[in-house]
């Protein structure tokens, strides 16, 4: 299996921004999504994620179809980061992937518009189903817009 630079790879299914400070998590998710036909853009913290989104915003149309983000990362409050994503990029569905099974937090984030809340470790099929749903939701949003 070849892991191309996802930014330049030509994924058929859509482009997903994966935000996680743990390299092995990014690596396995990237491989899983790439195998399923997605492009993956990686960011290891919120700052990088915001920069990537700002850079890609200049392209037309906005190429990121979904954001898959961790919550707890060094130098970032993940909850604030997710709120930023929702505020600045309301058209991009956000899926939270966290190591903490916190129901209250999950409810709170869903109320803020987070599409789904996954707790690590998540199975490949479950991850792919949620990402597919997110990308499709974004596609529907664009069609309606």
């Amino acid at each position: 299996m070849e892991c191309q630079d996802p930014i330049t790879a030509g994924g058929q299914m859509g482009r997903v921004l994966v935000v996680d400070d743990v390299a092995v998590v990014r690596k396995s998710i990237r491989a899983t999504l790439a195998n399923a036909g997605y492009d993956v853009v990686e960011a290891e913290n919120g700052k990088q994620a915001i920069r990537i989104l700002q850079e890609q915003e200049r392209a037309e149309p906005v190429p990121i179809n979904a954001i898959l983000s961790d919550l707890r990362m060094p130098q970032n409050n993940g909850t604030e980061l997710v709120a930023y994503f929702r505020r600045q990029y309301p058209a991009i569905p956000v899926v939270v992937l966290t190591a903490y099974p916190d129901v209250e937090l999950a409810v709170s984030l869903m109320r803020q518009g987070v599409m789904d809340f996954l707790v690590k470790p998540v199975l490949q099929n479950e991850l792919l189903a949620v990402v597919k749903k997110a990308v499709e939701q974004q596609g529907r949003g664009k069609q309606q817009g």
């Binding site: 299996m1 092995v24 998590v25 707890r72 903490y100 470790p121």
Partner: peptide
């Protein structure tokens, strides 16, 4: 609570890699 972060993250990697191996044919990968 802190341990959840330390343990679940590598488990996510392990699980992800293991699932990928199931369908992987390239020996190097």
């Amino acid at each position: 609570s802190g341990m959840a972060h330390e343990i679940n993250n590598p488990i996510q990697g392990i699980l992800g890699m293991a699932e990928l191996i199931v369908d992987e044919t390239d020996p190097a990968t």
